[in-house]
Nucleic acid binder design. Structure first.
Lengths: 188, 188, 188, 188
DNA sequence: GATGAATGAGTTTTCATTCAT
DNA sequence: TATGAATGAAAACTCATTCAT
């Protein structure tokens, strides 16, 4: 039931965007009565939050798993990029939710989203630090670089979407890693 | 008058976010009657768009100028990063608007924002292409890299804000450029 | 407009009681759109409070005037009783509101009603004190006696209503005063 | 079970007032399922009525007993006042219920409350009549005076509560009786 | 008897927009 | 131009009641 409602929200979110979400529509889409929504969720905000949470859960879990994997740091970052691109290729409409989500990141109300994002951020920073410790990377302010890395990945995701998912994931993931590993400069 | 209304919207957007914008509040903040808003703007959407346009106009103009400057491509990218960081250091509340704006980028309604963003994106891509042409950069899919670059810059901006604007702009700008130029890998 | 809404509320309150008040009905009765109600009042509670306030305003004003009149204290109390009985004879449906109102008096939310009631209470107590000062009354805890006096008057009002407004006002007012002046005991 | 539900209602009534009563809350407070309430009571109204009935039962029983006691009428009235003050000193939150109850007295639905109140009223009137018959009191419209007496007692109760239960019960009870017996006028 | 999930009609509230002045 | 009172459609939310288990 709860899950059914969340699925309905995700569906509507994908189809009509955040502004298109009304409790009426959610109820209809979920095939329950409007009042039922309030049995499981306190109010609209809570439904939206739960839906966003639910839709990114799998990605977060997998990305976190990757960050903890037993591989070289640069390989893990590459896996991160690959998985990220894949996920949004398949769920590109979720981008819209992501932006909804991101806006909330900086709102005072929603600590949870902050936490989730920040946890991932820290995980990436840890991997960068590992890379520094093992002599793979030069010393850096790892939190800032982690933020850059995540956002750069999202930039690539969005550009792919604008292009209509052109090019394959593998190649774009390597492209990201190549830049972060080697920079843009031509090697002579 | 028109400008006063736009300033009011910006103020509200900064203070309360997109959800906090109502025509009532805009009118009150601008010190005009609600009906007056409709003398200058067709509807709410137009007001929002115009306000976002107005607030990012200076940044866009300057960034565009930088992209067209007569400097080496890598220097121009460095200037881009520096200006970007500076702008958001001074106007960090505008971040909220940015997210509003971003969400709209992917909505079907708002061609303008798309255009503005895409124009900048193209400008950056052009610079990258110039760099490729002059042998400074290796060949690349310049639109994707441009998207990554812009988003990576925003990642840095956001991390700076989360840190409470720690570290100076100059250093962080160089950090971004260093990564995109040289990558993360330790030089032996 | 505001007044029209209040009149509508009073009308509904008299006809259907507090529970029968809905914003829909109020709007319909007042002949305005539902939304208009929210132009003049913040919410339902405020409308109810304002309506109760408005309906007792005349009585309060007159009773206050009587308490300040230039007459002997016992005469003023007699006038109080007479006016009170008269008012509720004419507006007996307001009794219902009064009871609604009284409930609110002791709720934590509604300071205003408290104030209004307490002001009248103090006025009556003052008159009693004057009577004590001039040697007309024996010393007393005037606030408590004032409360008793007001409530005793309301008891009479209610019994008159239960009886179907039997007996004339003049006689019942004198009855009240006679008790408070002379007590129930038979004079030999 | 039934009693547990009634206790729950009383508790809620005391804590949050009439408006705060929902079947949900009653069920939760009583520690039963919502549906169970409908096994023992037909609907919400019946629950409220039964709860009010239950809470005033002890007072009513005792007051009635006092009215039937084998004492002089004025002594019985004094006992009435004393018991009344005591009861509400101990249960002052019940005042709220009383007002709820009073509102209902004048509604068409609730015959029971009316009956209960009117029974007490009649009892008091009977005592007054006895007093008249035995030559203790002057002739009077005993129902009206009974109503005044009861309400005057409630006025004292409420003033005591407003004062924070100042003064002792004994003294205030005597004060009420003194007024009804001798009036306010100074004895020379 | 007891449950509690589900209901949906009814209610309050919001707010972009209009329009007579 | 400027106003601001009025609108009403749409939205959020409440809660007494039912019913299959």
């Amino acid at each position: 039931m709860r899950q059914g409602v969340l699925d309905a929200v995700i569906g509507l979110l994908m189809r009509d965007g955040v502004q298109g979400i009304t409790m009426d529509r959610v109820a209809m889409e979920a095939g329950v009565a409007k009042g039922t929504l309030y049995v499981y969720f306190k109010n609209k905000e809570e439904i939206l939050d739960a839906a966003v949470e639910a839709s990114f859960e799998p990605l977060i879990v997998e990305l976190t798993g990757i960050m903890d994997a037993d591989k070289a740091p640069d390989k893990r970052l590459e896996d991160f990029s690959r998985l990220n691109l894949q996920f949004f290729d398949e769920q590109q409409d979720l981008i819209r939710i992501l932006f909804y989500d991101r806006e909330r990141i900086h709102s005072e109300k929603n600590r949870f989203n902050d936490d989730r994002y920040l946890t991932l951020l820290s995980k990436v920073a840890e991997v960068l630090n590992e890379g520094v410790d093992t002599g793979l990377f030069a010393p850096m302010d790892s939190m800032k670089i982690a933020a850059m890395f995540i956002e750069a990945n999202m930039g690539m995701v969005m550009q792919r979407i604008r292009d209509g998912i052109s090019g394959d994931v593998e190649q774009d993931a390597r492209q990201i890693i190549s830049i972060f590993m080697e920079g843009l400069r031509r090697k002579q």
